[in-house]
Structures are given as structure tokens and as C-alpha cells.
């Protein structure tokens, strides 16, 4: 399984074959949006409802 790929470069090349740019873009956008909502969103409703989580996770940017 790892015998054929032995560098980060090969892995990147493999990923580029396996995934289309659109798939990568969608995945990154989704993950970034999720992360932003969880950690940095300042909209009062979202922000307050996850207030405890943010404190419990030690994220202090709020």
C-alpha cells in the first residue's frame, strides 16, 4: 500500500488524479465554513448557543 508512494509529492500527485479541482474546492469550502461557524462566527444567535462549547474547548477568540 505504501510501497508505491514514498514522498509527499507522490501523494499530492495521486490526489490530483483521484480528485477533480471542483471536488477539492467544495471540500475545502465546506470544512472552512464549518470551522468558521464553530470557532469565529460572531452572529449573536450562533455565538451564544455554542458559548459553552467554545469555553470548554479553550477557544478564547470571542
Amino acid at each position: 500500500m505504501t510501497a508505491t508512494d514514498d514522498s509527499v509529492h507522490d501523494r499530492l500527485a495521486d490526489a490530483r488524479i483521484a480528485l477533480t479541482p471542483a471536488q477539492v474546492a467544495v471540500a475545502i469550502t465546506l470544512l472552512a465554513a464549518l470551522g468558521f461557524v464553530l470557532l469565529f462566527a460572531q452572529a449573536p444567535m450562533l455565538h451564544d448557543s455554542m458559548h459553552n462549547f467554545r469555553h470548554a474547548a479553550g477557544i478564547v477568540c470571542h
Partner: peptide, 26 residues
Amino acid sequence: HGGSAVGPETVGSIASVAGGVVFGVL
């Protein structure tokens, strides 16, 4: 948090637990 209505405490608790789960999955 300004003067915004925080809503019932339980809503925040459940949302926080869900936030924790999503955080781990992320």
C-alpha cells in the same frame, strides 16, 4: 454577548454538545 436573549440554558447546552461532536469530526 450584548443584551441578546440567550434563550433557555438547555438550548445552549445541547448546541454546545453538538458543537463538540462536530469539532471532533472536523
